[in-house]
């Protein structure tokens, strides 16, 4: 990879400022390189989730925002959320209860992979990747918290995003699991060379991420 190429790749937040009801909520200028984790920290109410909403394209009507979001050289500031190529992970796994574990992954799997056999193969491989072989037919309601978190991660990755945004994704897991799931998420993001934007109030998350840290508020 050449230097000019790598300079263009990654998630760039250029001169981002967000206002709520006329008052400045937050300002940020940052670059997240492929495989790097930018941690945004701060107490609740300082607009951490607002930043994610802006980058993801979900900002509410009460907010006003300036600045650009550039992903791998593509200006995505004005794109609708479904065309941005940014995968989201939430506090909860949000697995769909009416589908099997495999069905939940199929929902995520990129439509570029065509044909039933190839798609099933991709889902099987994804499950194996996170140590959930033979879980495809399971009811998501029977999974443990850690297992559900891993399925949610793979669902997001199978959609082939170009970046990841994590909204307090480990806060609902108990301490032992948190460490394990956290490591897995960062490893996978690094493996696929995804820039990661992590919002958290847990200093341990920031430390494990090992990347730059921005304090809001």
């Amino acid at each position: 990879m050449s230097t000019t190429d790598s300079a263009e790749r990654g998630l760039i937040l250029r001169d981002v400022t967000i206002w709520l009801n006329g008052g400045t909520l937050l300002s940020l200028d940052a670059t997240v390189r492929p495989g790097e984790v930018l941690t945004v920290m701060g107490p609740s109410g300082v607009g951490k989730s607002t930043l994610l909403a802006f980058v993801g394209g979900f900002l509410g009507r009460d907010f006003r925002a300036e600045g650009r979001v550039i992903l791998n050289g593509r200006d995505i500031t004005a794109l609708p959320p479904d065309r941005r190529g940014i995968g989201l992970l939430f506090q909860d796994a949000l697995l769909l209860p009416h589908l099997s574990v495999g069905g939940n992954l199929m929902i995520g799997l990129s439509p570029d992979i065509k044909g039933g056999a190839a798609r099933r193969q991709a889902v099987t491989a994804a499950l194996a990747e996170v140590g959930l072989d033979a879980f495809a037919d399971r009811d998501p309601a029977t999974l443990s918290g850690g297992q559900a978190a891993r399925v949610a991660l793979m669902r997001t990755l199978l959609a082939r995003p170009e970046a990841l945004m994590l909204d307090e994704p480990f806060s609902r897991l108990d301490a032992a699991l948190r460490e394990q799931v956290r490591r897995l998420v960062f490893e996978e993001a690094a493996k696929y060379g995804l820039p990661v934007l992590l919002v958290t109030h847990d200093p341990a998350d920031a430390e494990a991420a090992g990347g730059p840290i921005v304090e809001l508020g």
Binding site: G56, G57, F58, P80, P81, D82, R83, R84, G85, I86, G87, L88, F90, D92, L94, I107, G108, S110, R155, T156, A159, P161, M165
Partner: peptide, 17 residues
């Protein structure tokens, strides 16, 4: 139905509304 989060999740996977 947790519509807000589900909507974001579906959109982030690239689904139309």
């Amino acid at each position: 139905t947790r519509a807000g989060e589900m909507e974001r999740m579906a959109a982030s996977l690239g689904y139309g509304r």
